[in-house]
Structure formats: C-alpha cells, structure tokens
Computed example of a mutant assay.
Amino acid sequence: MRNSMMGSLRVLLGVAVLVPAFALARVTVASAQIAGPKILWALGGTANTADYRGHLAMGGLVVLDNKGGAKSLNLTIAYVQPPSFYYGNDGDFVCEVTNPKDLSYSLTNGKLTLTLSQSDTCYQTVDPSQQFSNSRNSVSFTLYARGSKLRMVSTQASLRDGEGDTINSLALSGEMNPSGSGSSQATGVRFVSGGGGVSSSGDLFLGHMALAGLISLNPMTKKEKTGTAKSLDLTLTYYVPGYDNVVCHLTDPSDVSYTLDKGVGTLTLTVGSNDTCNLGNNHNSLSFDLYVAGASGRIVSTGGNLLSSTEAPIDTAVTADFSTPGGF
C-alpha cells in the first residue's frame, strides 16, 4: 500500500513539476532581455476575401524597447497574388512600415502585432504611384522566446491588397534575431539565401523564386549616394506553373548597386551581358529594400522588370538573408 502511495505521489509530483514547465515553454525571458536591435523576417502563404491565394514576405530592422513596443521600426511587406481578369496584377503591393508605434508585443501572452498607421506607405507593385492606405489594418503573431532570440507564427490579419480585398487568412512563420545597430556600411562578404512567391501578368498561377550566393559590397564614402560591389556570385531561379524554370547566374560585380544609411537602403540586381541566363533578361533587374545591422542583414523585394519564361513581367514577394558567415 505504501509503495502504491509513493508511486502515486511520484506521478503527482511529476505532473506538478511538468505542468508549470510546459506552461512556461512559450516565454522564459523578461522584456529587458530581448530589448535592442533585431533583424525581423517572415514568409508564407495567404488567401483573401476574393478567394485569391497569395504569398507574403516581410523583413526589416526593429529596435525593441522593454515595455512591449519599439524604439524604431523599418520594415517592408511584399505581397503577390495571381492576376485578376479585370485588374491584372493590381492586387500585388508593397508597404513601407516606419512608425515605431505600429509594433506591440507581450512576452507574458506570447503575442506580437503589427498595426499599420497613416504615416506608412503602401503602393501597387506594378505602379508605385498608385498608393493606398492600410491604416489600422494588422498582422498578428504568436511569439516564442529563448534567450534573446524570438520565433513567431501568424494567427490573423486584416491587411488590404492593391485591389482593396482583405487578406483574411495567412500562414507565415519567421524570426527576430539579435543584431548590431543599423549600419551605414555593409562590409564583408555577404551570404544571400532566400525565396518567396512570383506572380506574372501573363500567367494564371503563382510561382516561386529562390536565390542564393555571395556578394561583397564596396564601402561607400560620405560623398557617394550609390554603392557598388567588389564581387558577385549569385544564382537566381524562378518559375510559373506549366512553364520552364528561368535560371540566371550573376557574376559581374557591375550587376549590383545599393544605397545604405543607418541600416536602411536599397539593393538592385541587374542581369548583365556577361551573366548566364537561359531566358534573355539582359538589362532587366530585381529591386530590394536592404536592411543591415552589423554583420546581420535582410533584403525584401520591392519591384523590378524580370521576365518569366512566357516573356511577361513578374512581381515578387521575396525575402532573403544578407549576413556575413560569422554571425552578428
């Protein structure tokens, strides 16, 4: 009888120990421990109220405070969906999110929310002059923390696309990792690795893009507004269903141009005459917002004029790592 009672006690004690441990599995750190600069990114699939399936990518640089908000925020959201019969690719959009008040988080509840404001800029990818508002619309995530690193998965959204439909379903996952402060130089060899979605005005289905390689940027002097590259070795591949892959190997440093100021800038990759591409694309380009914080970095696509294998222009929702091999 005593052995039975002791066995039951061990089980109960085990539960008493395990339950609190499980309950604390989501968050085990205080806000003060994760405060500071972070490189943020997320990527995944979506659906909107018009029943279009899409891809959404986001990335940028955020400095978290220890009170559940942000001291600074620079974030890009890129979205693509299949072209509609009447509006073509007008649903594809990019949002530039820069208001620190847009971000809130709670480690106690394990939540992070981005709520766009009137000061943020959203525009159609095919025509950046066509701007629209996503004020008070949001994306929410469940947040998981270990040490100073954070992982997140989307739970709900209310963003509007370029045609005015609401993105009401999504499945995104991403990270917020510690970084240095925003840099005005992107020194060292940078790994580029990532991907995302592709939409083409000549095709009815979404495709995918992947890219990987190495870029070494030349430092910019104070008088320079646009930087160049010292070396480049990057492969870019994408497709739309039912058609051949487009594969481009970029090796000419003159293919690269960039801007950068306090961690925020742009990066442009242009297919040159010295590059190998199974579909022309000579002098066509892909543009990104560039975020650099010490040795860490992230790029998010914003536009360009690359062609699919049907020779129709593509829009992209792509994000990729842009970090040195040594970490941050």
Rank of each mutant, 00 (worst) to 15 (best):
A21R: 10
G207I: 12
A32M: 06
A145F: 11
T49Y: 03
A35T: 08
D321H: 14
K38C: 01
M5G: 01
G91R: 07
S200E: 02
T113I: 09
L64D: 05
N305W: 08
E163Y: 06
H283K: 14
A171Y: 08
L232V: 00
S257D: 00
T310R: 10
R160F: 06
D92S: 15
A186V: 04
Y258D: 00
T316A: 12
A23W: 02
M209E: 09
T251E: 02
D275V: 05
T316N: 08
L75W: 11
A312D: 15
L214H: 10
Y291S: 13
Y239Q: 07
A25I: 14
G197R: 11
L217Y: 14
Q185R: 07
E175V: 05
D203N: 09
A25D: 07
L12A: 03
I215H: 12
T319Q: 13
I39P: 13
V189C: 02
G197C: 05
S138D: 06
G182A: 00
R146S: 14
A16G: 11
V300M: 04
S231A: 03
T108M: 03
Q131R: 09
L9Y: 15
G7T: 10
F93V: 09
Y258P: 00
K101V: 03
A320D: 07
N218A: 11
G304W: 15
G227F: 08
I215E: 09
S309E: 10
L24N: 08
L56F: 15
G68T: 09
G197F: 06
S133P: 04
P253K: 04
Y79N: 13
Q124G: 00
L234D: 02
G263H: 09
L267A: 03
G194W: 12
K225H: 05
T46E: 05
G174P: 04
T268I: 08
P241H: 03
S296N: 09
A212E: 02
N137Q: 15
K222G: 00
T235Y: 02
G272C: 03
R2H: 08
L306W: 07
D161N: 15
S104A: 02
N3M: 12
D161H: 08
A212R: 13
Y123H: 13
M209S: 07
N177C: 09
M152F: 14
A210L: 11
S72R: 14
A293S: 05
G194D: 02
Y86P: 00
I77F: 10
K101P: 01
G68A: 01
K230T: 01
Q130L: 08
E96G: 00
D102K: 06
R160N: 07
S308H: 12
V292E: 09
L279Q: 10
S183D: 02
V264E: 01
T187R: 05
G60L: 10
D127Y: 11
S173E: 10
S301W: 15
S158Q: 10
T142H: 14
L114E: 00
T226R: 15
T302C: 09
D127R: 08
S181C: 01
L204P: 04
V192Y: 05
Q81F: 13
M176Q: 12
L269R: 11
V17Y: 09
N218Y: 02
G303K: 15
I77P: 07
L206T: 12
S193I: 09
L204Q: 09
K111M: 07
K225V: 01
G44M: 06
